[in-house]
Amino acid sequence: MSVAASIASGTLGGRVWFYSNYHCNLRCAYCLTESAPEVSRRELGKEEILARGREARELGFTAFGVTGGEPFILEYMPELVSGLGAELPTVVLSNGTAFNERRLREVEPLADLPVHVQISLDHPDPDENDEMRGPENFRKVVEAVPKLVERGIGVRIATTLEDPDAVDPEERERLCELHRSLGVPDEDHIVRPIINRGRAMTNEMGVLAGYEQLDPELTLTADGAFYSPFGPTVRGGRLDTDLLVSRTTSPLREPAEALLRIAESRPPGHDTSIGIN
């Protein structure tokens, strides 16, 4: 089966993920990649991402995702996302704390493209939110989201929880009221579990997820191609390789076909239930 046919049939996820970088201005307690200000950047690079993106479209992929690290601390991120969004629908995962006035002006062209910025917000109370994500995170997010929405940019809110099924309904409703008040409708609010990899594993948080539980979504990093955006995690400063597909990322057909072989060989009855967006 070709890559395009496998995407059409659902065997392969249609979205290609790019880990633009690994460094971040925050140090979240459950971060999959142990991202922090001082870690190695390991940038994939704007031209590399755009080139692989063009290949991905030709192969039949249907969407892009950009994550990190914090993508928007890279100067060229607005330009990069514009380039990706001109090819295919794109979602960028962000902590939402890097949108100063200059940055807001730079992302304005994204309003005309099929681009969403997916911003993390875990709790309706600032203190509890910031306990996991760092000081001032809540304030910066609730300031940034309306400004993005006002500019016509698609915004999603992602809430990451230890156990999404166990959350207090009242607390959940307050969170939903909050994102609605910021201009983000319910259909753009994603609630997902913490994955027990990276710093979450160190801190004994989250749910276990092997490749049997994850969607096969081609994920490119500076270290190679992975099975899922949950794959290129870091623990104890060491990159996890259990979900590495190949070090080769170009031509994109190579990791795409390797991922397809893996997806087709998954045991019958596999239970895919966890997505990053």
Partner: peptide
């Protein structure tokens, strides 16, 4: 590379 870090292939 130890078994728990072995890439799928």
């Amino acid at each position: 590379v130890e078994a728990d870090q072995a890439p799928i292939l």
